[in-house]
Design a protein around this nucleic acid. Sequence first.
DNA 1: GTGGTTTAGTTGTATATACCACTTTGTAAG
DNA 2: CTTACAAAGTGGTATATACAACTAAACCAC
Lengths: 241, 241
Amino acid sequence: MLKNGPVPRYYQLKEIIRQKVTSGQWNPGAPIPSERELCEQYGLSRMTARQSITELVNEGLLYREQGKGTFVSQPKITQQLIQLTGFTEDMQARSKRPGTQVLNHAMVAADAATAAALRIKPGQLLFKVQRLRLANGEPLAIETSLINFIGCEHLMDEDLGHESLYQLLEKKYGQPPLEADQELEARLAGEDEARWLKIAKGDAVLLIRRTTYTDRNQPLEFARSVYRGDKYRFYTRLNRK
Amino acid sequence: MLKNGPVPRYYQLKEIIRQKVTSGQWNPGAPIPSERELCEQYGLSRMTARQSITELVNEGLLYREQGKGTFVSQPKITQQLIQLTGFTEDMQARSKRPGTQVLNHAMVAADAATAAALRIKPGQLLFKVQRLRLANGEPLAIETSLINFIGCEHLMDEDLGHESLYQLLEKKYGQPPLEADQELEARLAGEDEARWLKIAKGDAVLLIRRTTYTDRNQPLEFARSVYRGDKYRFYTRLNRK
DNA sequence: GTGGTTTAGTTGTATATACCACTTTGTAAG
DNA sequence: CTTACAAAGTGGTATATACAACTAAACCAC
């Protein structure tokens, strides 16, 4: 029996099911108990149980077949690597030690392209930081971030060499990055990029442009990253609607 | 008032709302009618109206704020370009004329890496096709697809120079591609690739490896594509958690 | 003005119920 | 043995209802 309390009952059941799956008690391809069975076992109504299951189906952990039952999905290989993360979290998910070297930071006026991406007027002041990103001590990427929110000038006082920008935005500034649109392109390294990344001019690099959104699809960050092509792969999952 | 019939009522309402948004009757940032208002207007219960709205929220078209209402999301730039598509559909979404030149096709035995991706035994026979992909008549990519399903050998008889592989799989073979995991990497073009793509050896190319899944997360296709770096950008959207 | 309370309106959670559509399985009829 | 039908179990759709949590605005007391 689930209890009433600050945590909704559908959410409690959801986490119970997730635990059964990730712990291996319920195996991929195998059916989970029917909705009606779950109601009885945990003492809740069918609509509530359905809400738990529906959300897990949307996450891809389960799938339903009408007339047959609900089943555990086959696990995907890249599961941890397709979320929106900052560099620090991305490296942790890949079991690499993240490092950062701040090249420069300043308040700058938005140019036309940046203003369009962030939906602001050209010329408005933004926080800009350019950082060299390291994985296990080796240069991996150069990242240029432009940040816009009310009060973003306080970022000038932060130590971005040791603090995760995304963690700061979420925890200290109440601007959690929630979604991002990205654009990926293969390029050749220019002279400056090659020097920083310790590769040769003309080596392959992955250029990523990202617009990050917070609540209500409010644009928060516009970033341009150049990754070493030989040391970084990008993972994603696509759905057919 | 919505009517009972083969189309569920929640789905009818969903499409009505979608139409109001895409037609511009309801503007980004503006609130839509409250759930209770929609119930009354269209003569259905609140839970049914909620189902319509919930699905549109999951799609990102709307967002909710407790105590305030439900609102139309700001449109995203890349909205059409982040679905799972075959090359043909991808080009259509980008307003380019797709073209295809089949380089070769055969039934081949799966090597170890392919077998792992498709969850089959090494040595099993697969359909393999290698195609040069054109956009507005210009070479854009080389795509190598390995397909596995019961009866895949009949693909040998198809004209893949003029038929979309994904359309064929879905419409004729009952194997709709539903999801895909992708891996992207920046590389330099090799001699053969450069010749086909009409670029120089050492130019930047985007290497994409894709595993496509059909029903029940059954692996269907393992593909390796090499895109010209100067003519192709890949778009994606990321969510936090 | 400032701070608290009320009130009305919103979404969020939850129950109980009913019937539909589909799949599997067992059973009876041929 | 095969076919046809019935029954039971599954998820899919839908209604009616209730209360909780949260927001904004109006109101009142200080």
